[in-house]
């Protein structure tokens, strides 16, 4: 871990000012669950930390237009279990609870969740080249062990994935990220928040270095009737997704009147596919429809060797998640197991 100084401002203005002094080497810290992890690995080496925890940003409140504002400092646990989230955005509740552990969810903040960095083994290990960590050194995951790596939207420079579960639901729900900077504020639609790697894989998102996330706003429509967050991983809990699918439907009888579909574990960003959504809307909620949407999502998907299986797995997971969302039956929930002892 690096040597650093520490400040704990009480308000946003002061936090932004503190950050602006040495904007490149100063980092904000909130939950700390990923930043301190990376600092101990020497992947992140800030010289100054600005602790945001005294800022008044932990509220979850309904806005006049019916949307729900998640304060950037609300913890993942408080968000998942918030009555408004549970009743109006159960997809988000499921996605958050599918991630990390109860302890980590009690620490990690909603703003911080967006800023999680990839779990790529090579990114974490200073002994191997990594364009995300040290631009220009090369991507070790290409041609290496890339079971957890991207099948969509990757580049020749980086095949890392974004590790968040929460963000997959936020992408599906069409959230908006509210941001403050020293001279004002701006809103960033969720889909524009994270980046694809291209030839700048060291940039995970479109925040400028002096900016601070203040809230994440959920639109009024929460798809609380038909939804599913399906996460597939190498153990039942406390593991990052190989593939995750956030599926949300609005149904009129058997017909799909609105649809949302986003994937985790497949790309450098939470992967929402609006073209696939368009293939669902107006169609009957049948396996055929779901398969067409799934095929659309993986169009152009490319495996890297150890992750080739994820292309087929993604298709199957999408179909299953859509089916679960349409039927909302307990029986198909992949995570509930009862033994068949007679």
């Amino acid at each position: 871990m690096n040597s650093f100084t520490y400040a704990r401002p009480d308000d946003i203005t002061e936090a932004l000012r503190e950050k602006s002094i040495q904007v490149e080497t100063t980092k904000f810290i909130a939950g700390g669950t990923n930043l301190l992890d990376l600092m101990k690995e020497n992947v992140e080496r800030p010289t100054r930390l600005i602790d945001l925890n005294r800022l008044p940003l932990s509220q979850i409140e309904e806005l006049p237009d019916g949307s729900l504002r998640l304060g950037a400092l609300a913890t993942n646990a408080d968000t998942a279990y918030h009555p408004e989230v549970q009743s109006r955005y159960p997809l988000l509740n499921q996605a958050i609870l599918a991630g990390a552990s109860p302890q980590l969810r009690n620490m990690a903040t909603d703003g911080g969740n967006l800023l999680q960095r990839t779990r790529c083994y090579y990114f974490y290990d200073l002994a191997t080249p990594c364009n995300k960590r040290e631009p220009g050194t090369g991507c070790s995951a290409i041609g290496g062990y890339n079971r957890i790596h991207a099948i969509l939207g990757a580049s020749a420079e980086c095949i890392a994935t974004h590790p968040s579960d929460m963000c997959v639901a936020l992408a599906a729900l069409g959230a908006t990220v509210q941001v403050s900077h020293p001279t004002g504020e701006r809103s960033i639609p969720f889909e524009d928040f994270h980046r694809l790697p291209g030839n700048t894989p060291h940039l995970d998102n479109n925040l400028t270095p002096g900016e601070l996330i203040t809230s994440i706003d959920l639109p009024a429509k929460g798809f609380e009737k038909n939804f599913s967050y399906l996460k597939l991983r190498d153990r039942s809990s406390y593991a990052f997704a190989l593939i995750s699918v956030a599926a949300a439907l609005e149904l009129d009888g058997d017909r799909i009147t609105d649809a949302r579909l986003a994937l985790g574990g497949v790309a450098h960003k939470p992967w929402r596919d609006q073209e696939a959504e368009a293939l669902l809307i107006g169609q009957p909620a049948t396996s055929d429809t779901f398969r067409r949407a799934a095929a659309k999502v993986v169009e152009g998907a490319q495996g890297q060797g150890s992750n080739d299986f994820k292309i087929e797995l993604a298709k199957r997971a999408i179909v299953r998640a859509l089916k679960q969302a349409a039927e909302m039956s307990e029986e198909v929930n992949v995570n509930v197991f009862q033994n068949s002892n007679p």
């Binding site: 520490y6 810290i29 700390g32 992890d37 930390l49 602790d51 302890q103 009690n106 620490m107």
Partner: peptide, 13 residues
């Protein structure tokens, strides 16, 4: 009263 991982928080925080 809430459980956390004490390895991922700083004492000063």
């Amino acid at each position: 009263g809430k459980r956390i991982n004490s390895c991922l928080t700083l004492a000063v925080m």
